[in-house]
Every structure is written in C-alpha cells, then in structure tokens.
Design a protein around this nucleic acid. Structure first.
Length: 924
RNA sequence: ACGGACGUGGCGGAAUGGCAGACGCGCCAGACUUAGGAUCUGGUGAGGCAACUCGUGUGGGUUCAAGUCCCACCGUCCGUACCA
C-alpha cells in the first residue's frame, strides 16, 4: 500500500496536557464572531429589504425552562433547528429562528424556599449559563428576538390577553378541585403527584414528602377552551398531513368529542325512602312529594329499553335534594359514601377496582317505556356529560359489573345482527351494535337507526334529544404560587371582581418577598401587593388576586411575540406577525403532544378572533423528536429515597449509608432532578462543538429515543478531523483549476466519484426535507470521504495543476466538486468545520452564502450496474451489466456466468425472474 | 384493560418486497512510532474455520424472492385511565 498525501498531514505534535487534540477551539470562535456580525447586519434591515423576493421560513424549537444547564436532551432539538435554519438559508429562504425562555415555574420557587435565593436571580443566572452553552454549540439563534416570560415587558401582554379573555367571557371563575398536600400545606400540580407504594398500599402522594394528597375545593380562574373544542378538532384535519399522526390522534382523544343523546328521567322523591327494604316498592306507589328532572347522556340510546337502574355521580347536585327525603340510615350511608369517594383524587378513584354505590330508595321513570327503576349513587359515575347515567347491564360492561355486585336485573334488548353469534348476558355484557328486541315500537331497528329515531322522538317530546359531549374540560389556570404571571384582577368588597385597567398593566410581581415554607404564596403575605384600591369604586376594601397563571399560559403565545419582541406599545405589530407566521417547522418533544400544543392552538384561535392575526393554526408542520435518555441512579433505603450521581453513590457506599442492593438504575428522560444529564460543554471543550453536534444527530433518527452514551463520540470526532485534514492535503491539487469543456467525458473512476458526490446531495436533501434521519446522511458523508481519499490515491493525483493539458484535469475537477459539495452539505450540521474547509478550498465568502447544491441527474446514473444472481432466492453470483440492460440481457448474462453455470449443471431451470436494475432469480 | 410504537451482530444503528448487518463504536491483527488513549492498513454475525450451512423475538402464511406484507403469540417502551 502506498503512502497517501494526507498521511503526513496530521502533524505529529505531541499533545500538551489540557489542550484539545486539534485547533477546533480557536476557529470555532472565529466563525461564531463572523456569523454574529453578518446576522446583525441582516437583523437591522427592514422586513421588506431583507426579504426581497425570498420566501420566509420560520423554524422554531420549543423554548426551554431555564433549569440550570443544557443537557443532551436539549441539544438534539436545538442542533436540529439550527441545522434546519442554516439549510433553509442556503436554499434561499429568509429564515427566522428565535430563542427564548419559559422562565416562570415551580422549580425556581421551590429552590427559593429551600435556599432563600430569589427565583428571579436564580432564573437569570440559569439563563445566562444556558445561553452561553448555546453559543458554544454555535447555534445561530436570532438573539435580538429573545423573550423571557418572567419579564414584565412580556407578561404585561400575557395579562393583557387574560383581560381580553375576561372581556369576551372566555375567562371565568369557578370552584375547582385541586390536589392538596396537607403536610406541606400547598396545592400541587398534577405532575407533582406521584403514585407511592408504602406498606403494600398504593396511593397518590406528594412528590416531596410522600404524604397522601387530598382533593380540595378552591376558587379558581378557568379558560373556556371547551368553546373551541370543535374548532380545535376541525383544525386537526388541516394538520393531518404535516403533524405526526400520533399527536393528532392524541389530541383528538383528548378533546374526546362524542355524539349521543340526552334523555330526561323524572326522579320521584318520597320522604322516608331508603336503601333498606325492597329495591322497588311493591304494588301501587304512593304519589311522590317531589319530582326532579335528571338528564342522562348516552351514546347508546338504542339500549334505553334495557335500563334497569340509573346512577349518578357523588358530585351530582341531585344528591343534596335526595338527602332531604331519605330515612336517617340511608342519609348517613350516602353521606359517608360521598365523603369517602370525594376524598379520593381522580386517579385514586379510577384505580379503585370495585364499583360501589348506594341505593337511594328513590326511583326514576324511563320516559320511553314508563318503567320505574331504582336510583343509585355510584363511584364509577363521573361528572362527565351530565354526571348521570342510565344503566344497561346487559349491554355495558361497567353497568354489568355493578349490577352483578348488587344483584340488579339485566335485560337484553339488543341481539347480534348475525344470528350465529351467541350471547349470554348473564356472563358478560354484549356491547357490540346489533338489532333491537323487546323495545316497543323500536324493535327490529338497527343500533344506528334506533339511536337516530329515539333522539328525534325525545326531541319532539322535549325530553332530551341528540347532543354532543367532550372529554376536554375547561382549563384551570390559577396557581397558588409566587413565581408566575400575576392575574390582573382585583377583588372588591363592593364591586366584586374588577379587571385591572389596561393602562395599569403590567401588574408587577413584587420583588421584596420572603420565601417561607408556609405553603402560602408569598403574595398572600405581601401586604403592599395584596391590599389595593378598587379601580372601579376607589374603595380600599379591595385586594388583588394573589394567584398566578399556569406557565402554560405564558408559552401559549410566545411564538407570536418573537416576531416583534421589543414592542412596548402593542402585543405585536400585525404586519410583522403576518410576515413570519405561521411557524413553518415546530420542533419539540412528544411530552408536549397534548397540553402545550392544544393550548397554543387555542390561544392562536382566540387571538385570531380578536382580529390580531389572520391565521388560526400556529404551527404548519410539527416534528416531535425523540428523547435522549440517560441512566439515572436512585437510592432507596431507610435513610433516603432520592436520585444521586455516580460520584455521590460511591461516597454513600463508602460511608455505609447505602448498599449496592438499595440502588436502582433506570434509563429515563434526562432532567436536572434525576441528575442524569451530562453537561455538553465538557465534551465541546474536549472535541469541539461540531463533533458534539454531529454525534447527536448520528446517534439515530431524530424521531427516535436514544440513550446517551458518549462512547462513540470519538468516531464523529475522527471523521471531522479526517475531513479537515483531507481537504487541507487536497487543496493544492485543485487550486486554480482551468475550466473543463462544457460536456466533459468522464471515465469510469470519475463517474463513480461523481455518482458518490451527487447521491450524497440527494440523500442529504431528503433528510433535511422531513425525514430527519441525519444518521444516514452523515454515514453517507463518511462514505464520501472514504471515496474521496481512495480516489486521490487510485488516480495518483499529486502536485499542482499543470494547465489545460494536465492529464488529470477531469479527475481534479471531480475531486474539487466532491470537496466543495461535501462542505456545503455538511455545513448545516458541522458549520464551523465546514467554513474552515470551505475557505481552505479558496473561497472568500461564507459557505452559508453559497447555495445548497443540486444533484446532477446525469451523475446519479451509472453506466454499469452490479446485479445479484440468486438461485432459489440464495445469492450465488453477481454480474456487471449496462444500466440499460433489459430482462433478456440480464438472463443472458446470468446464464453466461461461470459460477451459475456450474451450479445449474444437471438441474432444469423451472423459472427465471429477471428484474432490470434489481435482481435475477433462478428457480430450479 | 385499551390504543400506539418497537423487537436486526458485543453496542448505536443501515436496508423503494430484490446480495441482511451501510456508517460508526468496540474488538483482533499489522504499519509508523521512545510511547499511544494519535494516525494509517486489513479483518470482524454464528458454526464449520475450506466449498457450505444457519441467521432480523416465536410460530404459521402470501411471494420467484419477506427484516420489510398478512395472521397468531411472546417481550419491551410510551400514551390513556371506568368519558356512559
């Protein structure tokens, strides 16, 4: 093997301790500074000058919560959007790629309670560090657009939107059930409630102290997102194509539209009724002392003749009325039952296996057949729909379970359409659609027809009718917390709820507060904030709302503010929003598939209705990247139950506070609290930003979860170094190349080289255009580099070009083209190295001022192709044929192949399949 | 329980129904080296170590041809949680 030019190129300088193995560190800073300069020039222009006749491209990653430092979980989406932004720029788009901070939130406040450092101080420290990390990565965000949800110039407009919602009746106040930790005396968000197993008992407990959480009723603000249910649903149809199916279907389920029928039952209330005695009073009933209407919702109105009892939720308003009529024993039973059921969180209630209930002694009258059925209060009935159900044990599993437990009647009213299907109602409910039996005038109808007819009949009788229900509930946004956006209303003793006048916005979060672990928001204890004058009657008998908003409110409109981040007079300028929105590509984690994305869509529609924007879907295309997970270590024993680092674990074991048996290792989402996120800066110091960027994308398809394991990073690093060195060594070979004739003839080696080069363009373009499996594109780059190096050797390219009569002129051009295209294709992913390489090739301009390369169709087709020949499906030989070879040529070539001839000896060929460009299969 | 996704070397992962394992890590051998955790070259699914055989969670099927399509099962992960 002869020695190659670039073998000498590496420079045998012995490594100095602490220094990187190459000079990446210095040129990274150089390019970052140049990009910043170029960017500033662009950013100063007006929209129309900078836009010209280019198309816009708004690429956005979900902004981070400033948790302290970026880990590799963040690095994937940011590398992805940075690459995408650079790619689109090269394609000639006017690109916007902003970054900001979802800066309100619980962790900072919890830290404040523990350490008494103000959340603002901590938050801005975190932001500064994380921004510096982003700079190290070479992410070229539009920093002039940076937003901070915790700054008054931003949350002023969050408050403004809230007031608009209040004005339009979209925001309203009602009692809400929240999770309450009796030990910490605080409200917990749903995600702070976890399943705890203690003494063999499973329950929902506080994430911090493990105390069983209780539900509590408090007054809270709600946003009427349910008014937008249908529009949110319809909008999904538009997004179907460019949003992941999974997200669309999850949102559909979350909205949970269900068409059904409301049916009014009359509930007869008789004094002294109770659960003892027969379930239905025998003989002629005495007239009731009162009758109450009770509406049930059902999707299976066709089963209404099979109703054998009705049941209501413990929260149902009818419960109170019933209590006025029952005998004392039943009253106590009901009260105990309701108290017990309602003391459970919804999760606990759902987890309870047993369906339980209390027979109230009251009866309800079925409006369609006049039958009188018992009324139960049951734990399995939720306040969904009307909070009351007609129970049909024969055709509903839940009712079947309950009826079995309480020995209630079952009555079959549906038979399968296919008479062969056997149905045994005593064993299990028959829930499939079918044909009605024993259903009065409806007998014989199919399920669908019956539902329609019954709905129409009820409508005519004014006893109900077709209706639609949603699982989606209104969005409770009040948080009894300090570190959030203050809710701009005043509670006045005389005037009630009074919105803070717009001129007085923002209602500023006071700074001088104490973070005591009282479980109360510091705002409640802050007299100056709390006490205020009523804006309406000017009385001092008024107090501010001391709750703050759910941070999902802050993040529901930030993508609009980016377009006009510094506007002090307006939420944003309509023209500026229009120039950029909607977001063309939104990148984020799957964990936001429902909440954030549905809230943002809701806000967009609301803002659209205000007339402030023209579009009503915020994100045209959504890409959900996979999670980069890390291995977490948790120690669980009598001393502790917490996450630790590897070092802490070693320490604990040394001190005898933990034994290897107490350790549970799990691969899970990287997060600060799990202590399993590695700091990318360390690796950037060691290998350079491009190596880390490349490696993150090389780990696997961006859509797929992967486990962070830095072991392979040297591979990425070696590749970049080899690339750089190869270009440095090859640059003299391609310096000052004279033009080739416009239609040069390429020899086989050149054709192969060009094929490799141009198929890389195809591959890379495909990945950038939406598959995002950059691992395969990077693999192609690595292949191309190997091809280039082999090409230089086999073509014996050396020295400078000797003019027009240089024998290797064509080959030199192929080499130049390969190097040039590779630099451009890799530029979005490894921008610093690409710039360095690009300038080494003699370019004065930035590689990002060069266009994205286009593949030459002619170069993509090879004159000769290799085709496999299989016998009975087993590969036996390969043949080389012209690309134009048809089936006949293939057959001839295969039969002519020596190895094949040998194998076919004495065997009759039964069949021969020849697919041009693919394969030859011989069946014997 | 339901819904979805996935299951390929020691590892990360490639494969429009057409030569399974691209590319990379790791490992083995060699070269250059005072040195190698630098670099270069070659090898690397398993078994025979040669010609061959077996190999994509398991079992069936469709096809000239299946990792890929269909059916059943097993396993892992993620959602949802009695929504009438």
């Amino acid at each position: 093997m002869e020695k190659r030019d670039f073998d000498k190129g590496s420079g045998r300088r012995p490594p100095v301790e602490g220094e990187t193995t190459d000079n990446f560190a210095s040129f990274e800073v150089k390019w970052q500074e140049r990009w910043a300069l170029a960017h500033a020039k662009e950013a100063d222009k007006t929209i129309s000058t900078r836009r010209g006749d280019r198309k816009k491209f708004y690429v956005l990653s979900m902004f981070p919560y400033p948790s302290g430092r970026l880990h590799f979980g963040h690095a994937l989406p940011y590398t992805l959007v940075d690459s995408q932004a650079r790619y689109k720029r090269m394609q000639g788009f006017d690109v916007m790629n902003p970054m900001g901070w979802d800066a309100f939130g619980l962790p900072a406040e919890n830290a404040a309670i523990e350490s008494n450092i103000h959340p603002a101080k901590l938050t801005f420290e975190h932001i500064d560090y994380m921004r510096s990390q982003m700079h190290r990565f070479g992410y070229a965000f539009d920093w002039e657009r940076e937003v901070f949800t915790c700054k008054p110039d931003y949350y002023k407009w969050t408050q403004w939107l809230f007031l608009k919602m209040l004005e339009k009746g979209v925001a309203y106040r009602k009692k809400a059930r929240v999770n309450w930790c009796p030990n910490d005396k605080t409200v917990l968000a749903n995600e702070q409630v976890e399943t705890i197993v203690k003494d063999g008992e499973e329950f929902q407990g506080c994430f911090r102290c493990g105390t069983k959480v209780e539900p509590r009723e408090i007054d809270a603000w709600f946003l009427r997102i349910t008014d937008y249910a249908d529009r949110l649903l319809d909008g999904l149809a538009k997004l179907d194509k460019d949003w992941p199916e999974l997200v669309v279907s999850q949102q559909r389920n979350w909205i949970g539209r269900s068409e059904g029928v409301n049916i009014d039952f009359q509930v007869e209330l008789r004094p002294g009724s109770g659960s003892s005695g027969p379930i239905l009073p025998a003989g002629n009933p005495t007239p009731p002392s009162a009758v109450e209407k009770m509406t049930v919702f059902t999707t299976r109105a066709d089963t209404v003749f099979g109703v054998t009892y009705v049941a209501i939720a413990p929260e149902h308003p009818l419960v109170q009325k019933i209590l006025n009529f029952t005998d004392p024993r039943t009253r106590k039973k009901i009260e105990d039952f309701c108290r017990e059921t309602l003391s459970m969180t919804e999760m606990d209630r759902a987890m309870g296996e047993e369906k339980e209930g209390v027979h109230t002694g009251m009866v309800a009258v079925n409006p369609l057949n006049g039958e009188r059925v018992p009324l139960f209060i049951a734990n399995y009935v939720l306040m969904y729909g009307t909070g009351a159900v007609m129970a049909v044990p024969a055709h509903d599993e839940r009712d079947h379970d309950f009826a079995k437990g309480y020995r209630l009647k079952m009555k079959q009213v549906i038979k399968p359409a296919n008479a062969d299907d056997k149905v045994d109602i005593a064993k299990a409910a028959y829930t499939a659609p079918g044909v009605l039996i024993d259903s009065g005038s409806y007998t014989g109808l199919t399920t669908d027809a019956a539902i329609k007819k019954i709905g129409a009949d009820l409508n005519a009788l004014h006893q109900g009718g077709p209706t639609v229900n949603y699982k989606l509930r209104d969005w409770g946004i009040s948080r009894q917390r300090y570190w959030g956006c203050p809710i701009p209303v005043v509670h006045c003793a005389k005037c009630g709820i009074v919105p803070v006048p717009v001129e007085q916005l923002p209602v500023v979060l006071p700074d001088n507060v104490d973070f005591l672990p009282t479980g109360q928001s510091p705002l409640v204890l802050h007299a100056d904030f709390n006490k205020t004058q009523c804006p309406k009657c000017k009385s001092m008998e008024a107090r501010r709302d001391t709750d703050t908003m759910d941070t999902f409110v802050d993040s529901s409109w930030y993508f609009l503010r980016y377009t006009d981040a510094k506007n002090a007079d307006k939420i944003f300028d309509k023209a500026k929003v229009k120039a950029w929105n909607p977001v063309d590509l939104y990148v984020g984690g799957r964990e936001h598939a429902i909440l954030h994305l549905i809230y943002a869509r809701f806000f967009t529609k609301f803002i659209h209705d205000l007339g402030l924007i023209d579009h009503d879907e915020p994100f045209s295309k959504l890409f959900t990247h996979g999670l980069i997970q890390g291995e977490s270590i948790r120690v669980i024993n009598e001393h502790m139950n917490r996450y630790v680092t590897e070092a802490q674990l070693a320490e604990l074991i040394k001190e005898g506070k933990a034994s290897p048996g107490d350790v549970s290792r799990r691969v899970e989402k990287m997060s600060k609290s799990k202590l399993n996120g590695a700091d990318p800066v360390e690796l950037i110091n060691q290998y350079g930003a491009d190596t880390v960027r490349l490696y993150i994308l090389f780990l696997g398809p961006a859509e797929q979860d992967s486990v962070w394991d830095p072991k392979g990073i040297v591979g990425a690093h070696r590749f970049l170094k080899r690339w750089h060195e190869t270009v440095l060594a090859s640059a003299p070979l391609v310096e000052n190349l004279p033009q080739l004739p416009s239609h040069p003839k390429w020899d086989a080696a050149c054709s192969a080289m060009r094929h490799a080069t141009h198929s890389l363009i195809e591959k890379a373009t495909q990945e950038f255009e939406g598959r995002y499996a950059f691992n395969t594109a990077i693999a192609k780059c690595m292949e191309l580099l190997n091809t280039i190096r082999n090409f230089v050797t086999s073509e014996k390219l050396e020295g400078k070009v000797s003019g027009l009569d240089d024998k290797k002129l064509a080959a030199r051009h192929c080499l130049m083209e390969a190097l040039d295209i590779m630099a451009r294709v890799l530029a979005p992913i490894a921008p610093h190295t690409a710039e360095e390489v690009h300038s080494a090739l003699g370019h004065q301009v930035s590689v990002f001022d060069r266009p994205w390369p286009k593949a030459d169709p002619a170069a993509l087709v090879l004159d000769e192709v290799e085709i496999a020949v299989t016998i009975n499906g087993k590969p036996r030989a390969t043949i080389r044929v012209a690309k134009t070879a048809d089936a006949k040529d293939l057959e001839a070539a295969a039969r002519g192949n020596e190895a094949i001839q040998k194998l076919l000896e004495g065997k009759p060929v039964k069949k021969l399949i020849a697919v041009p460009g693919r394969i030859v299969n011989i069946v014997v």
